[in-house]
Design a protein around this nucleic acid. Structure first.
Lengths: 195, 195
DNA sequence: CGATTAACTTGATTTAGGTCAAGACCATGA
DNA sequence: TCATGGTCTTGACCTAAATCAAGTTAATCG
């Protein structure tokens, strides 16, 4: 199953450990492939985020809608990223977020209870989990700092440097929302930086 | 050693597991008490964050200084919180942050290499680490959402609800900086909300 | 293929919050 | 004790970015 090959490689690469055949069978037994078409929702506001998904193909956005009906994108996700509202997933509380496929999406998904089992029984999976936690903490810290200390223009430059793939995969208005800008402002920033 | 008693209780409470006498001796052997007076630095920009500290008493702020010389507070920390620039601590890269005691500060500190040992040999410590990672991820997600979708006033109300201790422990200009506001703006917000 | 909808640009105007400046109110320590 | 420096408030002014509006270009789909 080629879906799972990519997934196994990812786990082994990030963790620096090998998966046994038993490990692989356990993962295949409890990660279910799921396909979503563009615009379909992986999670809707108010629902509990029962599943975490590993993105095999496609992209998604995690966003909120405020009282004025404005959308704010918190996260943009691509292949080999994990997809979930972690607050809702860990605590089993209703989510304040929506997660929507921006392109046709293929994920391997599993439940919180299952993840606990993987962590207990698959050393490579546990090691991967620790590395990812670290990476998340670091990325969050950086993003928070950017949001607080940088101007709109600096945040855009930062994105170009850190996530150049985003520019190819996501429409400009999504990027703007991710940066906390109106689409008009981002359009003007791009115009100015091209000279 | 009463410093360590509070620390042990914290680990046991968060992890839901007990520490053996051996565990406690190992922790006491490799967490060093350290005192800083108000205004002293736990970490300076450009240095590698070699130590992680558990705050036994006092408070601190983590901040950057931008090109214009403006300070931005990223984190305010109190008793029973961990103190470090995690990016620098995990990756051993020079830090972009300063960490300064806002009150006389007592921490128990240890190194990255030692933490790895604790994680390997002390189950309660490893469990605590996982819980804290979860809590951090959730808190970061919330804070990012607040920064992106809320007005200055809403962010202040959010702080009152989530961290009421902050108002008693930190001067108003520090709170303002933590919220990404000028001190004048916070002063005006407070004035308006009292009627 | 056209037709419809979504994405992007550009200009005019508004606004939330920042900056600058001055005064009031404090703690702290020699 | 009062001087000194940090903290908070208030007012006048400024600016980065949002909003509103209209037109243009690019995708999508029957």
């Amino acid at each position: 199953m080629s879906n799972f090959e990519a997934f196994f490689n990812y786990i082994q690469e990030i963790s620096g450990k090998l998966l046994s055949e038993d490990d692989k069978h356990l993962l295949m037994a409890h990660f279910k492939p799921k396909k979503l078409r563009k615009r379909q929702y992986f999670l809707q506001e108010g629902d509990v985020c029962k599943y975490i998904g590993f993105i095999v193909k496609g992209s998604a956005r995690t966003f909120t809608v405020d009282e004025k009906g404005h959308e704010h994108i918190l996260k943009l996700s691509l292949e080999n990223w994990w997809l979930a509202d972690f607050e809702s997933f860990y605590l089993l509380t209703p989510s304040r977020f929506n997660i929507e496929a921006l392109e046709d999406l293929e994920v391997l998904q599993s439940t919180n209870a299952q993840i606990e089992e993987f962590l207990k029984h698959i050393p490579a999976f546990a090691a991967m989990s620790n590395v990812i936690s670290q990476n998340y903490t670091i990325a969050n810290q950086k993003r928070m700092q950017a949001a607080m200390s940088y101007t709109a223009e600096e945040r855009y430059e930062d994105l170009i440097n850190n996530y150049p793939q985003f520019l190819k995969r996501f429409p400009q208005n999504m990027i703007a929302s991710y940066l906390g800008l109106s689409p008009e402002t981002l359009s003007r920033i791009r115009k100015n930086s091209f000279k």
